[in-house]
């Protein structure tokens, strides 16, 4: 499911596609959906995208881009400045430390590792937010966001897979 042609070079604006896709997901997360339960349960879409691009195109998603995208999410959401920047960098670092070949093997394996990453990510947002607010917050909200992110991970992989196809330059 996650395999595809990766050997061809990227040309033109295509080098920015991973960052653009994450920017799009950040904007998508900030839209007013006007659904009562969704404001507590919106999935961590940019985190899933950083995980995905960290496996397949880490060279096109430099740590500086991850930092500024995370910072932008913090600014637009009104959350603690630096929280998402820090956590997204750590997700990218984890994926790269594991090595592409390790995670690229099978979709199911990648998904299983993602479950652990998403749960730790949810716990970390809960911990940082609680410290920032100086009052322990309701942990199940963050874990609920993690669960939803895990559940829709295949859909995110499919969507970003379409983006990845655009990265393959035509033979000239």
């Amino acid at each position: 499911m996650m395999k595809g042609p990766e050997s061809k070079s990227e040309r033109g604006f295509r080098w920015a596609l991973p960052s653009i896709s994450i920017l799009g997901l950040i904007i998508l997360m900030q839209l007013p959906y006007r659904i009562s339960f969704l404001d507590n349960l919106l999935p961590f879409l940019p985190m899933a995208a950083v995980y995905y691009w960290g496996i397949f195109k880490p060279n096109l998603l430099p740590v500086s881009a991850v930092f500024f995208l995370g910072l932008l999410q913090d600014i637009l959401s009104g959350g603690p400045l630096g929280m998402m920047a820090l956590l997204l960098i750590l997700v990218r670092l984890f994926v790269i430390q594991q090595g592409r070949r390790f995670l690229e093997r099978e979709f199911l394996f990648s998904w299983l590792v993602f479950i652990i990453v998403a749960l730790i990510f949810g716990l970390a947002t809960w911990a940082i937010s609680s410290i920032y607010i100086r009052e322990p917050q309701y942990i199940w909200d963050a874990l609920g966001q993690s669960m939803l992110t895990i559940a829709i991970f295949p859909a995110i992989v499919w969507g970003l897979g379409l983006f990845r196809l655009m990265l393959v330059a035509e033979k000239r």
């Binding site: 919106l42 637009l76 009104g78 959350g79 607010i133």
Partner: peptide, 15 residues
């Protein structure tokens, strides 16, 4: 017009 919602369980604000 409300154009953005923080959509976070820990920070309740809109733009």
């Amino acid at each position: 017009r409300v154009v953005s919602d923080s959509e976070s369980p820990f920070f309740k604000s809109v733009l």
